[in-house]
Design a protein around this nucleic acid. Sequence first.
DNA 1: TTGAAAGCGATACCAA
DNA 2: TTGGTATCGCTTTCAA
Lengths: 335, 335
Amino acid sequence: MKATIYDIAREAGVSIATVSQVINGKGKISEKRRAEIMEIMERLNYQPSAIAAALTGKQTYTLGLLVPDISNPYFAELARAVEDRSRQLGYSVVICSTDNKDERVERYLNLLQQKKVDGMMIGTGIRNAGILTPLLQQSIPFALIARHMPSLAVHTVATDDRLGGALAAQHLLDLGHTRVAVLSEPARVSSSQERLRGFREVLEKAGYTLAPERIRESTAELNAAKAAVLELLGQSAQPTALFCCNDIQAIGALQAAKELNLRVPKELSVIGFDNTILASVTSPPLTTIAQPIEELGRHAVDLLIEELKQERQPARNMILKPWLVVRESTTKAPG
Amino acid sequence: MKATIYDIAREAGVSIATVSQVINGKGKISEKRRAEIMEIMERLNYQPSAIAAALTGKQTYTLGLLVPDISNPYFAELARAVEDRSRQLGYSVVICSTDNKDERVERYLNLLQQKKVDGMMIGTGIRNAGILTPLLQQSIPFALIARHMPSLAVHTVATDDRLGGALAAQHLLDLGHTRVAVLSEPARVSSSQERLRGFREVLEKAGYTLAPERIRESTAELNAAKAAVLELLGQSAQPTALFCCNDIQAIGALQAAKELNLRVPKELSVIGFDNTILASVTSPPLTTIAQPIEELGRHAVDLLIEELKQERQPARNMILKPWLVVRESTTKAPG
DNA sequence: TTGAAAGCGATACCAA
DNA sequence: TTGGTATCGCTTTCAA
């Protein structure tokens, strides 16, 4: 059986209170006793029960992270960043994939609460902000990553998606593209809507319009994206450039183009969003809008942990700047 | 403050024991009481404390998963599979990235123990099998994914790496390649060594040899792999084909080839391993050995949970078959 | 069908 | 410096 604090105390001939002090480096214990007790803990391979400690109100040193899909490289890279920073600071992370379903978000939120995580980071879309109110009521610290809930006063770390969309549009305009199309994510993904908005604004300011039939939606799955793009390109008056709201979709676009024997970028320029590892390995390599993924993760963790230490901070809103990474999937408009 | 079982009991005018029975659907409680208590729990937004329950010996319904790097798509896809299956079965998963360092593995192992996870899955390399003995002693169920510890009698789910290597070699031989090279992972990654072994065996059986200078090692990082391949290709008598022990390395190889103006597959055939999303998006798309990632994850979870239910099973060893996926990065040997 | 009470393994306050 | 003990929230006999 596992050794408990009682075993250690008995073995050392002291009380459990003393052992507890040694474990936590509190109180005044004589050097001799301390060494003695440490030695016994070592010998019995004693691991204090985090469960029991948590029950008495101690922190669990665990954070929760909700993402839609950990197998999407963007979220995997984000998770990695969150995990790295957390570990540096002595916390561990429970990662949950929600598939962008409110029902699952709710289940995981409950689960994490029951497990008494010290804080949560939410990087998944939520349709109904209401499911977050229990968290607020019980004042469990949390932060949103790359999502916005304007109705709630919570910490937020995000990329300036609108600017990202604008950068994409400007890049295409600079290359002379005026007949452009967009592959966006479903309306529930607010970041995607912002990207679309920024894109459209720049386009319109330049005197062009983005007709509704030039916009398609798909999830962030390769095949869904590919199918959507096939439809999009089936139209008369094909666009000369396509803005996709994430790299996976952009890859779906590359594959669709290939299937239609459309050469990228010669006949169709494609620009993505995220700048995950995917963007650097495609053929042609993907021009894309880069998100500061590592920073997003790091700041979210920092914000959360800061809040843990000093009670209720005013909600902060960090907006990080995206930037354009030009590779080989975009070029001058034909003609 | 959060409601506890006492609040519910008081409100309902019953004892906490009764409430506990209702929560767990045990014992015989009158329909009326049950409904009453349920209603109160609902109203007070009561969430039983998983922490307190765990302390009394109940399961935590949490599993641990150790991988070297969650931002590597192979492990991200594996984690996704593990998570999906676990959720189906009512468990949640704590994912930890170890960076292939024993020291971190040990830390996480302790952490997971302290958190009293019900079982662990280890998909990370371990140099010193000794750090697993505490787990065995305390009979915490665990399973190895895609790793082998022949010295330990533990559940193992893995791909037949040797066969995978053999398939790769056979494919290259079939295409007429005899001057081949290998990019493997460091010796501590046993799966990689097995792939190399299988590859070499087939090659030698066909009467060819794999000279030491034709083998390079690198980690599973893009840049490291690229650098290693640049060295490898710098030799006189360049190989006509290259087998890489994972897709990321293969991509590093594609990039190195590009830098050297070597056309793939015309002048250099490249074959990878894993068949992650990466393989389908590169240029050219990557011929690779596919691992049944989803099955690996699923079986590992099933094995573990089976063990949780029925005490100590004999250690099982599931070896799943890899297969060849031919895309466009390999072709007939020149000449 | 329900309740009283003894743990589970730690923490922390108050005495000694 | 140390120890006694109440406490955290829940599960689980054993009685009633």
